[in-house]
Write a protein that binds this DNA or RNA. Structure first.
Length: 352
DNA sequence: TAATCGTGGAG
DNA sequence: TCTCCAAGATT
């Protein structure tokens, strides 16, 4: 560890906390010390923007006000509440952990205890331990990594776990015991609003610009250093909106992998043209009656890209046993991911 | 270690 | 339209 870095970070807490006191956003999870509420917020906020979380957070706590309520919730209701928020294993791990906590009778109140719960890693364990229990545990997320690497002019790859460990160690040394609840929040707030991603830092508004090595040396805009990510692969799919009377076909995705356990319109691999599609429909056990529409849609995930060719048609026959047939009202009760948004809207258009 | 796992806002 | 990437965890 370089001596220089310690000196810089030692100056951080006082001006940072003063700035935070005047500039903190008014966020609902900052108004409570209830570990359950804080936990829910931290899981939702993983890789997800504050603006996207706010509505989900309010609806989720309304539906499941306690660990016990979450522990006993039906999975379909849980997934419907998480619909559109992404990273759906978070919701499943949340319920797994709720059942463990309910069984334990109390929320773990230490970093180690929290870390043992499903869906809680190093960052989240530290964040909850400090915000809910006042423990002196430095939480290192993307904001904190950006702030610290700029402050210390550190060019290590922030995707390397060793960099995170190093940053956490440095912060553990300077994090004030009497301000444990807000120090993490303040560092993240600075990274979210001033020392922000996507563009140059707003050093003119920064309370610690005076001793920021990245600013002094002119490297702040190039930090943090991050290894480039791999190119996305493209997957062609053909999606079928199968109409039968006032109903449409849905099927549940497998329990593992992408969009696990969510509902989708039936599809097959490959981009089928008008000549190939009828055979695929017949292979599913249907007799096509009327072809209504063809619709292309693209959806971009983090490292996969779906190119979807969609056909809307009326059919006869039951099809595979795992298909369920839903009317408009029932469709709206199922958790269908945003990847199918264009087809979802199309389905609604064709249902009475 | 490296790949996997969503979505949408911002530039 | 395209790229980046956000309060990460898991395997």
């Amino acid at each position: 560890m370089r001596h220089e870095e310690n000196i810089t970070l030692a100056f951080l807490p006082e001006p940072l906390l003063a700035w935070y006191h005047e500039n903190a956003r008014d966020l609902p999870w900052r108004k409570t010390e209830d570990p359950y509420c804080i936990w829910v917020s931290e899981i939702m906020l993983q890789q997800t923007r504050v603006a996207a979380v706010l509505g989900y957070y309010a609806r989720f706590l309304e539906a499941f006000p306690s660990v016990e309520a979450l522990a006993s919730a039906p999975e379909d209701r849980l997934m419907k509440l998480w619909e559109g928020l992404g990273y759906y294993s978070r919701a499943k791990n949340l319920q797994k952990a709720a059942r463990i906590v309910a069984e334990m009778g109390a929320f773990p109140d230490t970093y180690e205890g929290l870390l043992a719960l499903p869906g809680i890693g190093d960052y989240t364990a530290s964040a909850i331990a400090s915000a809910a229990f006042g423990r002196r545990e430095a939480a290192v997320d993307g904001n904190v990594l950006r702030v610290v690497t700029r402050l210390t002019d550190c060019h290590d790859d922030i995707l390397d776990p060793r960099t995170k460990r190093h940053v956490r160690e440095q912060l553990q040394h300077v994090m004030p015991a009497e301000s444990a609840r807000v120090f993490n929040q303040a560092t993240m707030e600075l990274g979210a609003t001033v020392c922000a991603p996507n563009g140059p830092p707003r050093c003119g508004e920064c309370p610690v610009a005076d001793f920021c090595l990245g600013r002094v040396r002119g490297t702040a805009e190039t930090l943090p250093v991050k290894t480039p990510k791999k190119a996305r692969r493209i997957e062609d799919k053909t999606v079928f909106l199968l109409l039968r009377g006032d109903r449409i076909a849905l099927r549940r995705r497998p329990d593992d992998g992408l969009l696990a356990g969510l509902w989708e319109f039936p599809s097959v691999a490959g981009a089928l043209d008008e000549k190939e599609a009828p055979a695929a429909v017949a292979a599913l056990g249907f007799l096509p009656k009327a072809w209504k529409k063809k619709l292309f849609a693209k959806h971009i995930f983090t490292h996969v890209e779906w190119h979807m060719t969609g056909y809307t048609l009326e059919v006869e026959g039951d099809g595979p046993p795992d298909f369920v047939w839903v009317n408009r009202a029932a469709l709206e009760e199922h958790a269908v991911p945003s990847a199918f948004a264009r087809y979802y809207a199309e389905a609604i258009d064709h249902l009475p």
